[in-house]
Every structure is written in structure tokens, then in C-alpha cells.
């Protein structure tokens, strides 16, 4: 089989497996899995920028939160119908990414990381500052009318799971397609050697900005989906840990692989889920994993697989 064929079999297989798991797993775990799929969308959005373009942003929580608040606030305060609010949320995140990216991409390396971190910090403080509407750390619950589509209640276990599955599947396949397109190849070229890509005549700053906006929009969509499916919007999703998590997931799963984000979220989620049963200092696990990964497996799980047994892995 060609590498191309194998890749589609893998993607199709993963989606079929996730579809089937709902009917096998007990409710608790299928609930967890729908959360994992939503967060995997976020990780995939982060991966476009970090894994494929080679830009490490430490402020992606602002896009996740932009999507989340863009959805939750318009549903609750403006009474937008659900699909409109959802699209609006993605647009808000994309617009924020256009502004933040346009400014942050003027810098590179360490400065880029710090600038994105500071933008995200400012965004977090803005959420707290407008506590009258956002209800700050306490957060708010998304109105029930905003969580229905075509008569299907998305707050039930099945509705939630399959909505997450559909959105995850769309992003998963779109990302696999994207990196095969000339656009995706150019991003990889920028990651490998930006100078050379520019010398070959590609407008690298334009492509970096496009990658940044795409990444922000997908992250925003993940945020909106989270608000839609779990019905809660809070400031903790805009805080620093939610900028660090996607980095952790993508590094663990394998940066620059399509399957990596899902694997990373899955492992990290269950690692934290299990350890939080023993201690309230569960972020310790996250710290340890980060340090061990940078020391011993900078490629992540899927990256190591690609290196050793499956060179065709996209």
C-alpha cells in the first residue's frame, strides 16, 4: 500500500474506533473521551503553528478563551441562535489571531514566546476586568437553548459524544489534507529552514501569519465547542495553564504529526485523572512529563514511532 493509502486507513480507522468506543465504554469514560476529543481539536490547532510551522506560542489560551466567551456571551447575553454564535466565536478567535499574530510575528524566538505569553495574560486580565459580564473566575453556565441543534440536545451523553466526534473528525481529516496541500508543505519548509524558504521566493511572513490565524481559529473553535458541549465558561480557561497544556499534549503525542495531539491529550488526561485521585498536586505530573520529554523524547510518542517503525506517518 502507498504511504498515502496507509495514512487514510489510519485516519479512518481512528475515527471508526472512536465511533465504536461510545457503545462499548461505560458512561464515565465516554464522557471523558468526548472531553478528550474536544481538547484534541485545541491541540491540533496548536500543532498547526508549533508542530508544522515551528513557532512556539505560549499564549494560545487567549484563542481558546476567545472562542469560548465568543460563544457563551453571545448565546447568553445577545440571544444568538447556536450555529450563529458558534461561527461568530470562530470569527472572534480568528480576528484576535490576526491582530496578535500580526504584532507577535514581528519578533522571533524567545521574544515571540514572551510576547504571546503577555498577550494571553492581558486577555486573561480583560476577562477578569469585565467580571460584570464574564463573572470572572466563577464563570457562568451556557443557557440551555444555546445547546440544541435541529432538535438534538447536545447536553446528553450521546449528543455530546457524537457532536465532539463529528467536529474532531472534520478537523482531523482537514488537517491531514492540509499538510498534503502546497500550503502545508510551505509551512513545513518554513519550520525546517525559513531562510531557504524565503530564498526560494515564498513570502514567509504571509504564510506564518496565515498559519497563526488558522491555528487561532481552530483553537477558538475548540473553545466554542467546549462551551457548547459542557455548558460552562470560566476564566480559568484563559489562564496560563491552558496555554501550557496544548504544548504539553503536542510534545507528548508528537509535534508535527496528525495523530500526535489526540494521543497526547489522551495520555495526559488519564495520567492527570488517575493521579488527581491520590493528590491535589496533580500538576506535578504535568511538570515531570514536560521535563522527561525534553530530556529523553523530544519527538513525542508518534514522533518516535515515525522515526523507528512507521516512516509514512503523516
Amino acid at each position: 500500500m502507498t504511504a498515502h493509502g496507509k495514512s487514510w486507513v489510519l485516519h479512518g480507522g481512528v475515527l471508526a474506533l472512536l465511533f465504536a468506543l461510545f457503545f462499548v465504554l461505560p458512561t464515565y469514560h465516554s464522557g471523558q473521551l468526548s472531553r478528550i476529543m474536544v481538547l484534541a481539536i485545541y491541540a491540533m490547532g496548536f500543532n498547526i503553528l508549533f508542530g508544522y510551522t515551528g513557532l512556539l506560542s505560549l499564549g494560545h489560551a487567549m484563542f481558546f478563551a476567545a472562542g469560548m466567551y465568543g460563544f457563551g456571551l453571545t448565546v447568553n447575553l445577545a440571544g444568538f441562535p447556536m450555529p450563529v454564535a458558534f461561527l461568530f466565536a470562530i470569527l472572534v478567535a480568528a480576528a484576535l489571531a490576526l491582530v496578535a499574530g500580526g504584532l507577535a510575528l514581528r519578533t522571533a524566538g524567545v521574544s515571540f514566546m514572551i510576547v504571546t505569553l503577555m498577550f494571553a495574560q492581558a486577555a486573561y486580565l480583560v476577562v477578569l476586568y469585565f467580571g460584570e459580564y464574564t463573572r470572572g473566575d466563577e464563570g457562568f453556565v451556557v443557557a440551555r437553548e444555546g445547546r440544541m441543534i435541529a432538535g438534538i440536545d447536545l447536553s446528553t451523553d450521546a449528543g455530546r459524544y457524537f457532536c465532539a466526534w463529528v467536529l474532531f473528525g472534520v478537523c482531523f481529516l482537514a488537517l491531514a489534507k492540509l499538510i498534503k496541500l502546497p500550503f502545508g508543505k510551505r509551512l513545513i519548509a518554513i519550520r525546517e529552514n525559513e531562510e531557504r524558504a524565503r530564498m526560494l521566493g515564498y513570502d514567509t511572513s504571509r504564510y506564518k501569519l496565515m498559519a497563526f490565524v488558522t491555528s487561532g481559529a481552530v483553537s477558538g473553535m475548540a473553545g466554542a465547542t467546549y462551551g457548547l458541549l459542557f455548558g460552562y465558561v470560566g476564566a480559568s480557561f484563559a489562564a496560563v495553564p491552558y496555554s501550557i497544556f496544548p504544548l504539553l499534549w503536542v510534545l507528548l503525542g508528537g509535534a508535527g504529526t496528525t495523530i500526535g495531539p489526540l494521543i497526547g491529550v489522551f495520555f495526559m488526561f488519564y495520567l492527570i485523572d488517575i493521579s488527581s485521585g491520590y493528590t491535589n498536586a496533580y500538576m506535578l505530573i504535568a511538570g515531570l512529563v514536560l521535563v522527561l520529554l525534553t530530556l529523553f523524547a523530544p519527538q513525542g510518542l508518534a514522533g518516535s514511532l515515525r522515526q523507528k517503525v512507521m516512516p509514512w506517518l503523516p
Binding site: L284, G287, V291
Partner: peptide, 10 residues
């Protein structure tokens, strides 16, 4: 940076 973030949490 990633390693020091890890150290921060540890």
C-alpha cells in the same frame, strides 16, 4: 523554555 516550565510545576 519547555524544561523550565516543567521545573516550575515540579
Amino acid at each position: 523554555i519547555v524544561a523550565t516550565i516543567g521545573m516550575l510545576y515540579i
